[in-house]
Design a binder for these strands. Structure first.
Lengths: 349, 349
DNA sequence: ACGAACCATGAAAACGTTTGCATGGGCCAC
DNA sequence: GTGGCCCATGCAAACGTTTTCATGGTTCGT
């Protein structure tokens, strides 16, 4: 409906009353179509014309309207990344690894933080990501059964990073193997009483990594004929001091553990600090191993099972980019590697 | 140009061939305009009609096209947050604090990571944020003079968090005061040889926090008649072990410091770990104070000057929301508070 | 030289909303 | 009973692109 002469009274005065393609076209003495083609490097424009259009566009510091472009082409050029908790190191590392990949593919990164089941549910119910992004990157998200069921309402591509959700393409470590590696390391050192430290989300959500690492702890101990009873499994609510709280409970046991397998490095840090505060030497009196590959673990000398978060993030982003380019999907399994440092040693006896 | 009969051969088959307003309108037996009004809670629709439209929309699981909506109304409903390095705790904390505020205001968060001057320059040159978001939130970004000059090309609102850039509205701590507080704490304990540990970005960018904390260190020492020469200022390139490297250099001095003021908590952690590794007791043989209020500092017992990053992020986001609501601007100064823990003590003598 | 193929260009439909303006019906006050 | 208002609704223009299709001018092979 813009074939006629431009009406004087524009209905929607743009917030940014800047130049549009028509302005560039007018100054370049060409049609809007040619400007569009010239600026996007699509064939069908002679080099001189292309150059002239480019120059004029630059001169006017013209910027294309992403909305109009997206509306017309049918996709947004954006990827939504959903995380449960932005301030945790894990998610920052993930985002940091994804960012360069997406940027290289000219995709913008929309970040959604959904804290707790309520928000996640609301998020999924309102389908806000749908049509706001071409793909959704679910990052190690705890999801309840209902939430999982609801997920396919979105028409967009879905990729999961750092976990598994239904049959969506994913990038993850084998958490069962990671857990076994950690616990076996402790057993190999000679420990016979090995506790586990984890945090539980208050809502009844299922976090695949959590379930599997806990399962690994239990079965590895049982397979070795050792005790893996619930008193040795300390579950605390999330917080900076969760590790300290959990360890305190474990140390109060009639027969306290000589080694602790912490769900995450942050938990391990907190536990180690607590142990030292109450006079225990680590690793002489207590061995602690975490999971993650947190950079501070290197500084602090913490033994850990590195799950190469940066690789996971990068690979997940690459998966998304491939998917959007029309490629095919293939799940990626990232290996978890044991990094022995200074917080594990044979038990004292 | 949709006044005529709908042509059979649609030009742009949408990626997501889902329902649009016209479908809802048809089924509800009303016009598109009424649907638009009904769904957005704007007056001018009777309650029965509104309800019917809502029901039908839900039934069809209709989702509005953000592109079309944005194109028509003239703004995007998005805020761009620009950070230099996503994996650092500081930025995760900032994003985590901003997210709930923006979400509450129905604004989506677009995150741009610009690593190094090259990328920042490219970012500013291509003005990608312009028109992709209604506002830009610059988070503690080191910027060179040229970059700063270029910034006003963007028509969007700009707010700065965790620093100061030109005369843009900002939320920040008084870094001069924060630095003075830290150094004075060391002086008050009796230290007379106080070093500073910082990281330098390789590019010639100016990071206001860095400049001011360094300046505070220098002047506070000089005012007390103490040495603040460059040999006591250890500048290392960014990395997990930057603190260790810096401290190693300081300890190699003919007259090593008895106390260290670290630019950030992460630097302090690394320095403390290094000190202990080489046999120095902290705080008995060496005092270390950082800046930030890193959550792990609580775990590790690190003395710090808390700059309340979470508050800064939240306030900056609130500033943006206010600005977009047509409000007025007012810079916010967040107080930096000394948190004495276990890594500072009087010198040994 | 002459038709064929090609290339650069432009016209205009389509993407899916929002909103100013016009319209018509119902209701109230006098 | 009638004129004036207000309210619910619809029409259609506008937002700024992308892309299909048509057109006219070159160029090349023979």
């Amino acid at each position: 409906m813009d074939g006629g002469a431009p009406e004087p009274g524009a209905v929607n005065p743009s917030v940014n009353p800047s130049v549009n393609m028509a302005d560039v076209a007018r100054l370049a003495g060409v049609s809007i179509a040619t400007v569009s083609r010239a600026l996007r490097d699509v064939p069908g424009v002679s080099q001189p014309t292309r150059d002239r259009v480019r120059d004029i566009a630059r001169e006017l510091s013209y910027v294309i309207s992403p909305e109009a472009s997206a509306l017309s082409r049918g996709h947004t050029g954006r990827v939504a990344v959903v995380v449960p908790r932005l301030e945790a190191w894990f998610y920052g590392a993930m985002l940091g690894a994804m960012a360069p990949v997406l940027r290289a593919a000219d995709l913008d990164m929309l970040v959604y933080e959904t804290e707790g089941e309520q928000e996640r549910t609301r998020f999924l119910r309102e389908l806000p990501a749908r049509r706001k992004a071409d793909a959704v990157l679910l990052t190690a998200l705890p999801l309840s059964q209902t939430e999982v069921a609801r997920l396919d309402l979105m028409g967009a591509h879905v990729v999961v990073a750092g976990g598994t959700v239904r049959d969506f393409p994913h990038v993850a470590v084998d958490d069962l193997a990671a857990g076994r590696t950690a616990v076996r390391h402790l057993l190999d050192l000679g420990h016979r009483r090995v506790a586990m430290l984890r945090t539980n989300d208050t809502d009844g959500a299922v976090w695949s990594a959590d379930v599997q690492r806990t399962e690994a702890w239990r079965t590895t101990l049982r397979d070795a004929g050792l005790d893996a009873s619930d008193e040795l499994l300390a579950s605390e609510s999330y917080g900076v001091d969760a590790g300290a709280r959990g360890l305190a409970r474990l140390l109060a046991l009639p027969e306290p553990p000589t080694a602790v397998f912490a769900y995450s490095d942050e938990l391990a840090f907190s536990a180690i600090a607590h142990a030292r505060r109450v006079g225990l030497r680590v690793p002489e009196d207590l061995s602690v191993i975490g999971v993650d590959g947190h950079p501070l673990g290197e500084t602090l000398g913490t033994t850990t099972v590195d799950q190469h978060v940066t690789d996971q993030g990068r690979l997940a982003a690459e998966l998304v980019v491939g998917l959007l380019a029309g490629g095919t999907v293939a799940d990626v399994e990232v290996p978890a590697t044991l990094v022995v440092r200074d917080t594990t040693a044979p038990p004292a006896h």
